[in-house]
Design a protein around this nucleic acid. Structure first.
Lengths: 213, 213
DNA sequence: AAACTTATCCCCCCTAAGGGGGATTTTTTG
DNA sequence: CAAAAAATCCCCCTTAGGGGGGATAAGTTT
């Protein structure tokens, strides 16, 4: 089944280039184009549209707002963000707005085809190129430890840690696990000893910073 | 050219499953497997290896450390992280360690093949599934803060919190701040009361999750 | 000046945490 | 099967944490 595509972009030149690329693509036909989000919503009200190729930054009604509206009014329409921006916030905003894919303008047409194939299967497509940007963000919790002491913990010990992190007492944990308080105390003592930590507060910090919760 | 693959994983069952999948895959042969990072480095020293399928969390020497070492010693070897973890920090750490791909264990073999094709081309492959996790992180918008309980804390109280997070006792903190132990105890009691927390462990969790450190 | 906040310190009392053992049973592993 | 590891429970004892007050001096606000 041929997919009806709407292109939304305020860059005339890019719009024409994309028109050419899509004209070479089978199973795809262009419904029309819009220079901003408002125009796009007007088009959607009048024509059958399957996919929207949406620029992120446009005047009047930007890609994020337009995508939110489209997903609200026409949930079946697939929206693919096509953008020059590869910054984290833009990507995240578009994803939260409900975009089904995210590709960069400087990637080739082969990537566009791959995106189409992925979205056709009902999956979400992200350009590999944007990932480098996303993943190079500074880490929230700076980690300096190289040796991972906690790999020596037993299953039971790892099970108890999240409960200690929650601030539960030994007795409360014991009741939860149907064992005696002494057992929990022993486990905690062993954990502290294995991780070479002074008290439970330090353990909570360690656990949260090493994703043991 | 047939690719020589080394599998590094401490889960025997998964290892065998992966062996089967790869035996069905053309242009690929398994050099061997290792149960942890150290073993992997030993294997790399003795055999020709093109690709490493690396589990992230393993005992003795985890995937992040092992990947760093591999990339340092054998830059030409492609490392693909294969993991159950889809949390942000793990992914980011592996990327920083130099991993050439990141796929989840619960994805099918078709994804593995896609990863191979992508990496064969010299590109980096990321599982689409992990992206949802990454992009659903809370967006850093300091403006739209709701009511934060800790905004009512005094300067002294905020000063004490990081010290409690470090696991210091009241006396240790008192010595650091040149006040009496009683003072620190009072401050901590006030903090717990203001934040409506049961004990210091819960406070540590709160502090780390709300960037009070 | 009166009211309020903060930081400082103290009291009593009780509970939870932590250090040092040891012992048993079950499970895992070589 | 035998050894090792893990999970379970107990003892004693000391220290730190936490709930309930209250008091004072210094500074700020109203």
């Amino acid at each position: 089944m041929t997919r009806q595509i709407l292109i939304v972009d305020d860059h005339q030149l890019f719009l024409e280039g994309l028109r050419f690329v899509l004209s070479q693509t089978p199973e795809v036909s262009i419904v029309g184009d819009a220079l901003n989000g408002y125009k796009a919503l007007e088009m959607l009200a009048s024509y059958r549209v399957d996919w929207v190729l949406m620029d992120v930054n446009m005047p009047h009604c930007d890609g994020v707002e337009a995508t939110k509206q489209i997903k609200k009014l026409y949930p079946h329409v697939k929206v693919i963000a096509v953008t020059m921006l590869d910054d984290y916030v833009s990507i995240q905003q578009m994803v939260k707005a409900g975009a089904d894919g995210y590709i960069l303008k400087n990637t080739g047409s082969s990537e566009l085809h791959r995106a189409f194939e992925t979205i056709e299967k009902g999956e979400v497509y992200y350009s590999n190129a944007i990932l480098n940007t996303i993943l190079r963000r500074p880490v929230a919790t700076p980690q300096k430890s190289t040796t991972k002491l906690h790999q020596w913990l037993t299953a039971r010990e790892k099970q108890i840690i999240p409960l200690l992190v929650e601030g539960l007492t030994s007795l409360q944990i014991a009741d939860k696990l149907y064992v005696s308080e002494s057992t929990v105390i022993s486990h905690r003592k062993n954990i502290l000893h294995k991780l070479n930590l002074k008290n439970t507060s330090a353990l909570v910090k360690y656990a949260l910073e090493h994703q043991l919760v």
